[in-house]
Design a protein around this nucleic acid. Structure first.
Ligand SMILES: [Zn+2]
Ligand SMILES: [Zn+2]
Lengths: 246, 246
DNA sequence: TATTCCGATAGTGAC
DNA sequence: GTCACTATCGGAATGAG
């Protein structure tokens, strides 16, 4: 078994990832990413043999029921993160502040998939948008979560009507043309996802580094970005700078 | 005074390079290169203020007398190296073996200049062709001595007749079209030296690495070349491999 | 192509 | 795009007053 199939080992025997395991049932494992790229970085790993080797941009395409099931686990995982951050005293707002909590859950925690996963078993990332982690070591790490290479989960929702395969592209049922200013996407239109490997490799290796908080750009200066992310982190979270783990 | 003019300090006061100084008189300093790129790597530094800031490919062009003077120091310096290598017991042949000694002096020790010197004061390199040194750290180091970027001293000899400036190119009075198989070049023809900075930069940064002993090529694999040069060194010289200083 | 430091880029191997 | 390791490649500073 190569590194590409490490999650299969976890599916076959959750005891193999006890130190990372947060939740398991008949449908999924929820684990901590072994090399978290942000303050909290969890993974949902569906167990179904019929799904686990399907490309994440295609696996939900004709199975609204599967999408809906995973959607519930996404919400569950975001709640796990919120509970953990509150318990750790890392948030600057109180649990009773439902507006701030809602905003954080639905904006600052993102769920999604990589357009080209390196690990072959289907997995959905649930990750805070600080990207403040010693494991975030190079541009591709960062750009794999902050460019179109990362496709948010809600954009994978299949349409109500059964559309054609659309030339093999994954499709996107999203609100990207929604002019509503609501808190997060609710409507759907059909949009293709880029699946060309060369274009996607170019996206993560060549896209200029851009701060997810403020939009500041850093070209290819990764170390500069890291320092900036630390500054953003200490502003956003309830920690002393010396406690940080860049 | 910037790093580019460090040799001027030596010219003004040879005491500033006592640890490197091998010889001095009214015309030149002969010193060890402070960062030797081979087993022996010496420098001849002419002291004349009229010459020291002239480009090495041009400085001999209309001054056969100056060339002849430096030529004597080149021979002197090669003899210094031979004496030192014999004294150190590094050679596999005896001082009485005049054929081997002659061959080593005239083939394995080369004199020449860099087409684009980084240090502005005129200096002529006298260097053994093993390139076995911990100070040889990257491709440009190696290629600056093993490509056309390095112009051998004998090719700088001005012609007997006073030729025109030839469009600002340095010229080369060499035996490159000499069909004689003699031990080393003795005749002269006039050939231009490449002086275009971009082309020369390309030569040292892009030329594939090639062993000076056997012609083996290593593309850009510098570490591979280094290991090979160590193998060649222990074959060529009287040393145990563990004594080496790669 | 002076050195040195730092950092960005690239290839490999992993069973 | 898994990691970790090695190595290649690339820019910047360097001083003086
Ligand atoms: Zn920012
Ligand atoms: Zn060789």
């Amino acid at each position: 078994m190569s590194f590409r199939h490490v999650f299969q080992k976890y599916i076959d025997n959750a005891d193999a990832c006890l130190d990372l395991l947060l939740y398991k049932d008949e449908n999924v494992l929820i684990i901590k990413d072994g090399f978290p790229k942000a303050l909290r970085h969890y993974l949902i790993i569906p167990k179904s043999p019929d799904k686990t080797q399907i490309h994440p941009l295609l696996v939900f395409q004709k199975d609204p029921q599967f999408y809906k099931m995973i959607e519930e686990y996404v919400t569950k995982t975001k709640k796990l993160i919120m509970d953990d951050l509150f318990a750790a005293g890392l948030l600057k707002f109180d649990k009773t502040d439902t507006l701030a909590t809602h905003e954080f859950m639905n904006r600052f925690i993102k769920a999604g998939v990589h357009s080209i996963p390196s690990l072959s078993n289907l997995h959905i990332h649930i990750i805070t948008q600080d990207f403040y982690s010693s494991r975030l070591k190079h541009k591709k790490h960062y750009n794999s979560f902050t460019t179109e290479f990362f496709v948010e989960f809600y954009r994978l929702e299949p349409p109500q009507t059964d559309l054609e395969d659309q030339m093999g592209y994954g499709y996107d049922s999203s609100s990207s043309q929604n002019t509503d200013d609501g808190p997060y996407p609710t409507q759907s239109i059909s949009v293709r996802h880029e699946m060309d490997p060369l274009k996607l490799q170019n996206v993560i290796s060549k896209s200029p580094l851009k701060c997810t908080y403020c939009g500041a750009t850093f070209a290819n200066r990764f170390v500069h970005l890291k320092k900036h992310l630390q500054e953003e982190f200490v502003k956003k979270f309830a920690v002393a700078p010396e406690d940080t783990n860049s």
